[in-house]
């Protein structure tokens, strides 16, 4: 004989087991199209398993950095880390940013194996490093070092906090305050202040690349040639010249539909034929949408803005 039974509702339809059953079935039903999509997705998919894993890895790495920074003296427990990760997963912009980085890295790896384009040191970057102009040379060196660190971090599925754009950096610190127990307010405040004080957006890879393509490469068409510029500089130049965000540009390059990439290239000032050539460099067996030759650079830029939600 078991303990006293809970009062079951008179109407069987309200039975908690039936509610649980329904919830489970709904979740299962929802998973079917997702699974089908994942299984059927070709290599270029934006949510290929490797990309999903990479994004999760970066977010987990960010979570543990946050937990460690705030709980310096105390032991770091797995439960707090999981809670931190769960919280970070809710940050839409952060997720999108990590996805863009993962897609960028996957593209860099793909072009390294396919076209022998070094993911760290491209011919254009090399030329800029060797530049007689001291300012450009040192900027290029700093960008090169940052790109080397990025490659290393991506291989380890990591993303240093300091590499986040300021808005995201701010957002994850705010998220950390919510999640991590505030037992020692002073220490936490100090940790926060230290993280903020050490943060320098200008030293991040993305800022260095953006500055480099604006200052050294404002004129050169080489920056829009992925085989010359390498994926990282290419994306930065494309974003800077088209006015699109770099994250969005990285996703466009990975999108098998290629329409956004072609229009971004056009908006960045690439000639239609050159834009198509670049798109085929990225996805050699793609079936390119037609009609780019009819689209002016200004029109392309306008269309990109129009479709944004």
């Amino acid at each position: 004989m078991t303990g006293p039974r809970a009062q079951t509702p008179a109407d069987a339809a309200d039975h908690p087991l039936r509610a649980a059953l329904a919830r489970g079935d709904r979740a299962h039903a929802r998973s079917a199209p997702a699974l089908r999509h994942l299984l059927a997705a070709p290599d270029q998919s934006l949510i290929e398993e490797a990309v999903v894993a990479q994004v999760r890895g970066m977010l987990a790495n960010l979570a543990s950095q946050l937990v460690e920074a705030r709980l310096r003296s105390r032991p770091v427990d797995a439960a707090t880390q999981d809670a931190m990760l769960a919280r970070l997963l809710l940050e839409d912009d952060l997720r999108a940013h990590c996805q863009a980085l993962a897609l960028e890295w996957r593209l860099a790896r793909k072009l390294e194996s396919g076209l022998a384009i070094d993911p760290v040191l491209s011919p254009l970057l090399q030329a800029w490093v060797a530049e007689a102009d001291a300012a450009t040379g040192s900027l290029a060196m700093a960008a090169l070092a940052a790109q080397a660190r990025f490659a290393q971090a991506q291989r380890r599925m990591q993303l240093p906090l300091a590499e986040l754009p300021a808005e995201l950096f701010h957002a994850v610190l705010a998220a950390a305050r919510e999640v991590i127990p505030d037992t020692d307010a002073d220490a936490v405040a100090q940790a926060d202040a230290r993280l903020r004080g050490d943060y320098e957006e200008g030293a991040s890879r993305l800022a260095l690349l953006a500055r480099l393509v604006r200052e050294a490469g404002a004129q050169t068409p080489r920056a829009l040639s992925v085989e010359d510029a390498g994926v990282a500089l290419w994306l930065s130049a494309l974003a800077a010249r088209s006015g699109e965000s770099r994250d969005r540009t990285a996703c466009a390059a990975a999108d098998p539909h290629l329409g956004r990439l072609l229009l971004t290239l056009r908006a960045a000032g690439a000639m239609p034929a050159e834009a198509e050539r670049q798109a085929l460099r990225i996805q050699p067996d793609a079936d390119l949408p037609r009609g780019l030759a009819d689209v002016g650079t200004r029109e392309a830029a306008q269309w990109l803005v129009d479709v944004q939600p």
Partner: peptide
């Protein structure tokens, strides 16, 4: 933004 976030920004 720099003032609000309290972070060093570096932007075009």
């Amino acid at each position: 933004k720099a003032g609000r976030l309290g972070l060093r920004l570096s932007r075009p």
